[in-house]
Simulated assay, not measured.
Amino acid sequence: MLNSKQEESLSKFMSKILRHTPEQFGIELDHEGYCDIRDLINGIKSEKRWSAVSESDIKQVVDHCPKQRYEIVNGYIRANYGHSSGRLEYKEAIPPSILLHGTNAKVAAVILSEGIKPMGRKYVHLSEGVEFASLAGKRRGELVILQVDTQRAVQDNVKFYLANNGVWLADFVPARYLTKFQ
Results as ranks from 00 to 15, higher is better:
E8S: 14
M14N: 03
K16R: 13
K16N: 03
K16C: 07
L18N: 06
L18Y: 01
L18H: 02
E23I: 06
Q24E: 13
Q24L: 06
I27L: 09
I27K: 15
D30S: 07
H31W: 09
E32G: 10
G33Q: 03
G33N: 05
I37H: 07
I37P: 05
R38P: 00
R38G: 01
N42Y: 02
G43N: 03
K48W: 04
W50P: 00
A52V: 12
E55N: 03
S56T: 15
I58L: 12
R69C: 03
Y70K: 00
Y70H: 07
Y76F: 06
Y76L: 01
Y81H: 03
G82R: 02
S85P: 07
Y90L: 01
K91E: 08
P95G: 09
P96S: 09
P96C: 04
S97Q: 12
S97D: 04
G102Y: 05
G102D: 01
G102S: 02
T103N: 11
T103V: 02
I111A: 10
G115I: 05
G120Y: 09
G120E: 08
K122N: 15
K122I: 02
V124A: 07
H125Q: 07
L126S: 11
A133G: 14
A133W: 15
S134P: 13
L135R: 15
A136V: 15
L143T: 02
V144L: 10
L146N: 07
Q147C: 09
G166M: 07
W168P: 11
L169M: 14
D171Q: 10
A175P: 03
Y177E: 00
K180R: 14
